[in-house]
């Protein structure tokens, strides 16, 4: 789980599967970003093969808190499988999904989160 800063946006890049077992690392990466005072979060899904419901649950658990602090959690570069899951569940209506990391980072400049 790689995490880096692009300007004031924290880009988290999970690799492989986020499932009930690996979800803790994902949760830790998000917790760490928030503890460091970073609220603009972009999840780069280019290395993400699959996300089980536990992973979505973690995002759901953070999102209100993040938005209340003026930040957001956005996603970019999702593969078809992951995007399909988002669509089926309606998750794409809750979180912005961008085509590329660059677009994701720029989306924070163009349209600062709430």
């Amino acid at each position: 789980m790689e995490s880096r800063q692009v300007g004031d946006v924290t880009v988290i890049s999970p690799r492989g599967f986020i499932n009930a077992h690996t979800v803790r690392q994902f949760e830790q990466a998000l917790t760490q970003a928030l503890e460091d005072g970073h609220e603009k979060i972009l999840i780069n899904g280019s290395g993400l093969a699959y996300i089980a419901s536990a992973g979505l649950g973690v995002i759901m658990g953070f999102i209100e808190d993040v938005r209340a602090k003026g930040g957001d959690i956005r996603l970019a570069e999702l593969n078809d499988t992951v995007f399909n899951i988002f669509e089926v569940l309606g998750f794409n209506h809750l979180c912005q999904v961008l085509a590329s990391e660059q677009e994701g980072v720029e989306s924070y400049q163009a349209e600062p989160a709430s």
Partner: peptide, 12 residues
């Protein structure tokens, strides 16, 4: 908790 929230898409 995480799985229920992820499936139902609830924030609380």
């Amino acid at each position: 908790m995480t799985n229920a929230m992820g499936h139902v898409l609830t924030t609380r």
